[in-house]
Write a protein that binds this DNA or RNA. Structure first.
Length: 590
RNA sequence: GACCCCGUAGCUCAGCCGGAUAGAGCAUCAGCCUUCUAAGCUGAGGGUCGCAGGUUCGAAUCCUGCCGGGGUCGCCA
């Protein structure tokens, strides 16, 4: 960054300089990792500030302010830094030379759609498992948030240099799928003309199984009914699961969500018993034993039966009680299957595991993390992201859903009504672990109230400036890459208005923001950043109304115009990049 | 009974690995349209960061306890 930053990542470049400057005072890497560089809230504190002196003071055995002065002295020699101040308890405030912001913008433009990409993941494999909805019916609106969250997180991680596998766990074993099979078989009889009457209690009543029955009838005619029960239920089950998964895949595609791997629970026990193998592996590590559990503390425990059972020692890893691996009938618990499934992830070489779960599974986090820790000998880490409940509203009023009557709003209905972009952005415009109100009426509103519109409109507005500019400069190219070439050499030092500098700073922040969002597994940060960026752009745009000299296109001043267009291009580019990571389109006009 | 999440302006929410005087939108009030999309923008008022301790140069942020709201618990997936 002597004159021009070698890295497009301005913050990383400055941090590297600070680290170099503090190197003589550092005694351990731990301290160094606490040194951060940030942009201060108060502009009078300069462009960037670091806590280095305060963090290192104790270990260096010097007073913070004194240490700060010493570090400041080194930094003053830096050609990219115009001014260094020591303030408050020991902050080191840096004012960068003005052209640094222009250089950062230039670097952003040259990087194009790769701006913000990083290699903090170092190509390491990371497995992101999300949705994993039971294949017993269509996706409902509750699945949206996890789907969108997982997808955006996977995008972010890939952009941050991880090798991402997007995975869906199909619960195609167990009691629910047996019910599905029976329900499908009933629909098959119905398709053959039999009068089946009301669907019996305990079976799935949904009409969505009628096509499954019809398909079975079309393929097997009356032959299916003549088969032994286990055989015909197997066929009914496989057909039903297959058709449900096709429907789920279609629904997910409507949301622009796609997976690399669909992992079948049944496959764990189909050939060799991999659940048994997983339990055995844990037993070898001394984490499985036969024992008794205390009775449950709450609820109606009338069917509680004190017996010896196979238990996983999850309390060794901070869980409250040890967890059963087998039911009283000898079959595996869901947890046991899940252990085998996560063992598969570890065995496939993943050390970074991320599971996206609904809030109702919150109680399972500890035991699953315990299992992964035990399975991997502590080498793999499982981060479980809980997505909280979504409350579906229309104009502020809750949308009525009656589970008993089988009336639930499907994912497809919501996407069809408000569009994929609104669903995705709104679901991400909130921390994952806080409940979210999703208002169908607001989601399609074209106003500042509606964040997705506001951000997309920022992009469209930027593009419209270029359409307008083409009237003035007929040779202005359309594609981003050629546009950047056309803008090369523009006098960016003419961008001096506070609103322009704000935007340049915001653009320079993008790579750091992406890294942070990826590292903390928090896509919502990106959504908020884009909102802020769009807001600053709208503000600048409108200033041109009052102050014509601030307009992007200046009639007889092609060079200033090129500088301004460079800024607009930066905005457009970052908005497009960020929206793409969130899986939201960036329209050229609205 | 235990565990998880939440508690920040009247409302909805941000607050990055602890940083300097806690931010935005809505709502309220006062303004801005012969001009690149007013589908927008500018400004003002408004907060004991649930409460009480602790950790330290420094706490909305970390720890402990309480209060309030939501969720989960069992060989159900």
């Amino acid at each position: 960054m002597s004159a021009a930053p070698e890295s497009a990542h301005l913050f990383a470049a400055v941090l590297a300089r600070i680290r170099a400057a503090v190197a003589p005072f550092v005694t351990s890497e731990v301290e160094l990792s606490r040194v951060v560089v940030e942009s201060p809230r108060d502009p009078s504190h300069g462009d960037m500030a670091t806590n280095a002196a305060m963090v290192l003071a104790k270990a260096a055995g010097r007073r913070p302010r004194e240490l700060a002065e010493a570090i400041a002295e080194t930094l003053r020699a830096d050609p990219a830094i115009a001014k260094v101040d020591v303030a408050g308890p020991g902050f080191i405030n840096l004012t960068l030379r003005p052209q640094v912001w222009g250089e950062a913008l230039r670097a952003a433009l040259e990087a194009g759609s790769d701006y913000g990409r990083s290699d903090i993941g170092k190509g390491e494999p990371v497995n992101v498992e999300y949705v994993s909805a039971n294949p017993t019916g269509p996706m409902h609106v509750g699945h949206c948030r996890g789907a969108v969250f997982g997808d955006a997180l996977a995008n972010l991680l890939a952009f941050a240099g991880y090798k991402v596998t997007r995975e869906y766990y199909i619960n195609d074993a167990g009691a629910q799928v047996e019910i599905l099979a029976r329900s499908a078989y009933l629909r098959y009889r119905e398709a053959l003309g039999e009068e089946i009457g009301p669907i019996p209690e305990g079976l799935y009543p949904g009409a969505y199984l009628k096509p499954v029955g019809a398909a079975l009838a079309a393929e097997y005619g009356h032959a299916l009914a003549a088969m032994p029960e286990t055989e015909r239920l197997r066929i009914a089950r496989e057909t039903a699961v297959g058709m449900m998964m096709d429907a789920i895949r279609d629904d997910l595609a409507a949301l622009n969500v796609h997976f690399d791997v669909f992992f079948s629970e049944r496959s764990l026990t189909d050939g060799e018993d991999r659940v048994a193998a997983a339990i055995e592996a844990l037993r070898r590590r001394g984490k499985v034993y036969e024992g008794r559990l205390p009775p449950p503390k709450s609820g109606a425990a009338e069917d509680w039966e004190d017996r010896e059972q196979t238990l996983f020692r999850s309390t060794d890893f901070g869980d409250d009680v040890d967890r059963p691996l087998k039911k009283s009938d000898g079959s595996y618990t869901y947890f046991a299957s899940d252990i085998a499934y996560h063992k598969s992830k570890v065995d496939r070489g993943f050390r970074h595991l991320i599971d996206v779960w609904g809030a109702d599974h919150g109680g399972y986090v500890k035991r699953m993390q315990a299992a992964v820790q035990a399975l991997s000998g502590g080498t793999a880490r499982l981060d479980v992201k809980i997505v909280q409940l979504v409350r579906l509203l229309r104009g502020g009023e809750p949308v009525k859903m009656s589970k008993r009557a089988g009336e639930f709003v499907t994912l497809r209905e919501v996407v069809d009504e408000v569009g994929r972009d609104a669903v995705r952005f709104d679901m991400l415009f909130r921390k994952n672990d806080a409940v979210l109100d999703f208002d169908l009426a607001k989601a399609i509103e074209a106003s500042r109230d509606n964040p997705v519109f506001y951000v997309q409109y920022g992009h469209a507005r930027g593009q419209s400036v270029f359409r307008q500019a083409r009237a003035e400069f007929p040779d202005l190219p359309e594609t981003p890459r050629e546009r950047v070439r056309w803008l090369r050499g523009a006098p960016l030092e003419r961008l001096t208005d506070p609103a322009e500098l704000d935007l340049m700073r915001r653009i320079a922040l993008y790579p750091r923001l992406v890294e942070g969002a990826a590292a903390t597994h928090e896509p919502h940060r990106l959504a908020f950043y884009l909102y802020d960026l769009a807001s600053e752009f709208h503000a600048l745009w409108t200033r041109g109304k009052d102050l014509p000299h601030l307009r992007f296109i200046i009639q007889n001043d092609p060079e200033t115009t090129r500088a301004r267009l460079s800024l607009v291009q930066g905005v457009v580019q970052v908005l497009a990049s960020g929206l793409a990571l969130l899986g939201v389109s960036a329209p050229d006009e609205m």
